[in-house]
Design a protein around this nucleic acid. Sequence first.
DNA 1: AGAGGTAATATGGAAAAGCAGACTATCGAG
DNA 2: CTCGATAGTCTGCTTTTCCATATTACCTCT
Lengths: 126, 126
Amino acid sequence: MEKQTIEPRAYGDECDGCTGPERIEVMRFQRAIRAITGKWKIEIVCSLVAGPMRFGELRRALPGITQHMLTEQLRDLARNGIVIRTAYPEVPPRVEYALSQAGVDLMPTFSALHDWALRYQDRLAD
Amino acid sequence: MEKQTIEPRAYGDECDGCTGPERIEVMRFQRAIRAITGKWKIEIVCSLVAGPMRFGELRRALPGITQHMLTEQLRDLARNGIVIRTAYPEVPPRVEYALSQAGVDLMPTFSALHDWALRYQDRLAD
DNA sequence: AGAGGTAATATGGAAAAGCAGACTATCGAG
DNA sequence: CTCGATAGTCTGCTTTTCCATATTACCTCT
């Protein structure tokens, strides 16, 4: 039996002829992708482009989403600084979600990806 | 007890005052994102930018990946037309993976996302 | 007093993604 | 004949996502 996995270099990336500084870039990258992946994140962000929305408005705008999912995804987006959550201490409670600058600045990327998807959609599986 | 989920409109998007044609765009979008998400996809694509590589080369270039993961992710990328798999009927077997045009054309998007990630990395969680 | 709206939690389960390790087939070198 | 190299597949396990339902707390309106 042989080992199947090649051990990753621990941490000190001394780079003995390898792809050195790229690794941290890749990690940054993946964090960015993780921040926008999730079943509803993109839909939420797209909804918010038009302007701030309340929780219930979003829920109605995204038929099929559960409250749980919506709160979870919004929380995640807020945690990554993409949306801003503002809770007004009123009653009944009112909570508004808006795109942050980071969220708005995501748009060029989105449109680049969208163009790509449009060009190659026929070969994209599923 | 009340229903928590708002029923999605079935299929015929007749669009009674709703976000109509955008929905299909969002779906395209998500397929594109799904095509590039996965623990190792980005790393693989980045490795292949420099030129075609063999399976074993990739394995060595991505310390920590298992053979299983590598075959799986490559298969997925190939299925989405991002990489091209070429098996030479030699012995010992030789299989080469190269970026397709679609793969190359992904780069502008990658760099847009990369710029975004760089600008906002401090607020990105995890 | 009871119904209704708002924005959440809590709980429990199913499905998908990720991981490690074992196993296979083929051929040439020693 | 056994060893090593290549590029896989197969099996079982853990973790993460995703999903549905139930419940809460508060206030207003009737």
